[in-house]
Amino acid sequence: MTTLQAVIMVAIFAATTFGTRALAFVLFPAGRPTPKFVVYLGRVLPYAITAMLVVYCLKNTAILANPHGAPELIAILLVAALYLTLKQSLIAIAAGTVAYMLMVQLLFV
């Protein structure tokens, strides 16, 4: 890619991301009352979406092939165990990531 092409790509990423964030405000402008169903969705969706994001991160994990998603499973269990015991999200995230990197680089090559 040339520098100009890369700049165009970054501009597309930026504009599209902003578009997704602004869409709801365009569809339901401040001047008019928001439909009740949309208000209800706004309250329940955030919790459903977090679960979706976890699955999103794991979407390319090949469960049927070796190592059957073992590094992902072990690292997630480690993150959960550390977070629930220490209540320190950064430590849990850091330890889980380092453990995962070590597993995929050294153990399950």
């Binding site: 964030r21 869409l23 955030p46 979406i49």
Partner: peptide, 12 residues
Amino acid sequence: NARHVFYGISML
């Protein structure tokens, strides 16, 4: 980023 639409809905 489609999920951001849902965040927008929550912040209207």
